[in-house]
Design a protein around this nucleic acid. Structure first.
Lengths: 167, 167
DNA sequence: TATTGTTATACTCTATAACTATA
DNA sequence: TATAGTTATAGAGTATAACAATA
């Protein structure tokens, strides 16, 4: 059982690590949609997925996925496989080109990261990876089904908070 | 010495954890600038800082910090202390109100996070925190001084990459 | 009637470039 | 002339709400 103080401490650490993630994303080659690569990676790891499933996994609104997917389809990196059981949705599949783009980006960033972790042991890195994966698992378990990202008004929207209003 | 493959694996984990960070930021009370709280937390942890120093720590451009600071000053959460040694800059200091806002936000999110980590031991959490802190340290060490965030054209801008152009 | 996905619109965060004021 | 900071502008990324098609 974690104390709130320990939680707050970890919060700060996560924030600091956030800068690393941001910097990694900046390393992506120009012309390569940063957010799109995340999506490609998800399809690569989890197989064909629907828009709604991707939205849940990546924790963003469906509308966001929808627009990114459209662009990825135009680029030929993703294709839509009609869903025979439900005409409203289709499954998204990585194309060979899409897989290659994803692979190149991942390799590039992975090497950059590995260079950064010069003085880490492989075990230390593995430990960090494991704990991060578990963090995600705990996060997923912690939210009620349907609570996920946006969509579905989380609550009756609390009354305007007592924050100093700007002039 | 980390292999590239290990780096790529960690990259994926960091991406997954990124969703947790995003979700945490969404928990902030409405009317409370998400990015601003990060800035308040930095001032709280490191003491008075100049705009440029904050930009380096948070790994964003000075112009971004500049605008956020202006808003935080208007809200009364940060005040500018003139720098007697250099009339061009001033030191930014958390006001008592600013510290309170930051504290409330941090406590709130920390509790949310602690609840999420229900079945973790304090030691596991501490380990994750330690490794994340070290990640940030390695990251800082890995970039040449001045390489940091934007500002200062990183390089002659590589020639347009061979990415399929959109119609 | 409920659900899946799309589109229109607006807001947040960010970077780039041009500017100012000190140094 | 170089540096610290500001402002104007543009571009990602995202959420909200209204909508279409299917269930």
């Amino acid at each position: 059982m974690a104390s709130d103080a320990v939680g707050a401490e970890l919060l700060v650490r996560l924030g600091e690590a956030g800068a690393v993630i941001k910097a990694m994303r900046r390393e992506l080659p120009p012309g390569c949609p940063r957010s799109g690569v995340t999506l490609l990676a998800a399809l690569d790891r989890r197989g064909d997925l629907r828009v709604g499933e991707l939205a849940e996994i990546l924790d963003v609104d469906q509308s966001v996925i929808s627009r990114h997917v459209t662009e990825l389809v135009v680029r030929g990196w993703v294709e839509r496989m009609p869903n025979p059981r439900d005409g409203r949705s289709s499954y998204l599949r990585l194309t060979p080109q899409g897989r290659q783009v994803m692979r190149e980006s991942t390799d590039r960033l992975g090497a950059r990261l590995a260079a950064m972790l010069d003085d880490w042991t492989d075990e230390e890195i593995a430990t960090l990876g494991r704990l991060l994966a578990r963090l995600r698992t705990s996060f997923d378990a912690g939210r009620a089904p349907g609570d996920h990202a946006p969509r579905a008004p989380r609550a009756p929207a609390p009354p305007a908070p007592p924050v100093p209003s700007l002039p």
